[in-house]
């Protein structure tokens, strides 16, 4: 969070994250190009660079797509999510080097515009074995470009969160295009089955992780809170909510986070205003509910970000009867002061 925009919101953790990304990418490229030079007598630097950047970008895309479901399944992966944006931009630049060098190597030596040549040099769209796979990679790169160019909070605010989120969900279309790009490309130039096996394994891991995370979310959302008194739903026991943590309850269509801060319980809407992060999976830091995704903060008693920030979420009524926690699912307008409820000796 910051009052005015900065180019890159680096802090100690993000710098360490970026150093790790840069170190891994450099090592991967050096090893790939070095090993290719040693083992392949027909080696050319351009070909090694094109192949090393393609495999690295594809590997990073798998990591990026796995981070979301992994965080849903285990909160230990949350530090990876914190700076996923930088990983995404890094992946785009590596893919751009791959695309740029490929365009240069295969399409810039004639008298036709390289971009025109990309689409007109091979028009066998009806053939699987001769399919013009480079066009698929081009469209995937365009999606990655749109995502990388809008990877700043400025765009989240000015394109609106809905448009921004939709734009960034296109990463799944990009992934599909890249899978087809690799499959149709590899089919034309490689006979070794290891490439197909690796591609299938990567896709299988991603699909499995998404299905597991999705089913867990559905299970949570389908939990029923049918005991109702005066509009309040019985949701849990006071001892179920750990100090400075929350539990999330889905009543109707809304997810509500019930937080325990000091000796009181508070209820706020579960969705962070920044990128829709699950507030109930965060914790209380410096007296504020802190989103686990990017650290956006809200005061538990009114759902407002501490001044000078302006984000607000809805608040809800909550009460305790004996050791039972009861939640009213009707939201108050965003930022409405609610006193919470004193836990006292009810634990």
């Amino acid at each position: 969070m910051s009052v005015s925009y900065t180019a890159v919101g680096w802090n100690r953790q993000k710098k360490r994250y970026d150093f790790a990304i840069a170190g891994f990418c450099s090592l991967y490229l050096l090893l790939f190009i070095g090993l290719t030079a040693v083992t392949n007598p027909d080696y050319t630097f351009e070909t090694a660079l094109i192949r090393s950047t393609s495999t690295l970008a594809f590997l990073l895309l798998h990591v990026i797509l796995a981070i979301g479901p992994l965080c849903r399944l285990n909160s230990k992966f949350l530090p990876l999510l914190y700076n996923r944006r930088h990983l995404g931009v890094t992946m785009f630049f590596i893919a751009l080097i791959h695309g740029g060098f490929s365009l240069f190597q295969f399409h810039s030596l004639g008298n036709v515009n390289p971009f025109v040549s990309l689409f007109s040099s091979n028009t066998q769209y009806h053939s699987l074995s001769q399919f013009p796979f480079q066009a698929l990679g081009f469209f995937a790169l365009i999606i990655l470009l749109l995502m990388a160019a809008s990877s700043h909070d400025f765009w989240l605010h000015n394109l609106t969160p809905e448009v921004w989120k939709t734009l960034h969900m296109l990463v799944y279309i990009a992934y599909l295009l890249i899978v087809l790009h690799v499959m149709t490309g590899v089919l034309q130039f490689e006979t070794h089955p290891v490439f197909v096996v690796l591609l299938g394994a990567g896709a299988a891991v991603l699909v499995t992780l998404h299905l597991l995370a999705g089913s867990r979310e559905i299970e949570k959302d389908n939990a029923r809170f049918d005991t109702v008194e005066e509009g309040f739903h019985y949701v849990c026991e006071t001892s179920d909510i750990l100090p400075n943590r929350a539990k999330i309850f889905c009543i109707g269509v809304e997810r509500i986070a019930v937080y325990r801060s000091e000796d009181r319980l508070y209820a706020i809407h579960n969705v962070c205003k920044h990128q829709g992060g699950p507030l109930g999976e965060g914790k209380i830091i410096d007296g504020c509910i802190t989103c686990p995704w990017h650290g956006y903060q809200y005061l538990p008693n009114n759902g407002q970000s501490p001044p000078p920030f302006t984000e607000k979420v809805s608040t809800y009524d909550i009460r305790i009867s004996g050791t039972k926690v009861w939640l009213h699912p009707t939201p108050y307008p965003e930022g409405t002061e609610r006193p919470g409820v004193y836990i006292g000796n009810s634990i």
């Binding site: 009052v3 005015s4 925009y5 900065t6 180019a7 890159v8 700043h152 400025f154 605010h157």
Partner: peptide, 9 residues
């Protein structure tokens, strides 16, 4: 939010 923002941004 762009008021007072850096040229880097």
């Amino acid at each position: 939010g762009a008021k007072g923002s850096s040229w880097g941004f």
